[in-house]
Design a protein around this nucleic acid. Sequence first.
DNA 1: CGCGTTGTCAACCATGTGGTTGAACAAGGT
DNA 2: ACCTTGTTCAACCACATGGTTGACAACGCG
Lengths: 123, 123
Amino acid sequence: MTDQLSRVFAALADPTRRDMVARLTEADHTVNDLAAPYDVSLQAVSKHLKVLEEAGLVTRSREAQRRPVHLEAEVFDLMTKWIERYRRQAEARYTALDAVLARMQDEEDPTHTSDTRTEGTAS
Amino acid sequence: MTDQLSRVFAALADPTRRDMVARLTEADHTVNDLAAPYDVSLQAVSKHLKVLEEAGLVTRSREAQRRPVHLEAEVFDLMTKWIERYRRQAEARYTALDAVLARMQDEEDPTHTSDTRTEGTAS
DNA sequence: CGCGTTGTCAACCATGTGGTTGAACAAGGT
DNA sequence: ACCTTGTTCAACCACATGGTTGACAACGCG
């Protein structure tokens, strides 16, 4: 799970982390600040932040002894790009003509060489 | 990690599963079919499909001894809705005026009672 | 009927993840 | 210098995840 897209999806697969991101869209926050609403230790929150940071969703600067956390919203584009691409493609299959063509193509060429995909065979 | 949104994000955090989804946007596939390109056992692929199914990304019907896998693209909306909501909110902060207002609000009311969020405190 | 094809279930293993507590480090304020 | 505040590091634990192999269920075909 080494690529950034995977890290971003994984980071947002946790409700606590999603809530943190949600709150960070409103304003930057310190770690303590962020931790307040959750019933877990400060260290746990620190770990969550590390995950978000490694996914590129968040950056931390220094300001006195505080480490304000800032959301890097551009990373969202990475996901939306991926999602939108395949959503559009999937939707296209629902139009009658495309469905027929796809099925015909599939029978001629079962080794799906056709491609609009980016990712390799990865795991 | 019980809610669907979490399951969807988690499901797509794996490159192999993302690639499966990508291929399923082109056409339905059987399990063997899907497994072909990857260098893992059929059982491993079966497990991946279970994850995708539990996330609601995929459904399986029965057709003789085959179990064709079909993509349910509507679930993508769940993600795009979440992402777009916060992305827009985050982008809004970059407009000069909004940034100033947000900062003023932040100073008056440090207990972020403000809200546009949906999710609770969850974990 | 018996057999191959297609796919799942179960048990197991290694590694990752989210949580804990306790100690340590960093930067001011006094 | 020292205490306080803010944050991270380290060790540990329980459980989830992704992979394996082996058994077996479901179905169509000869």
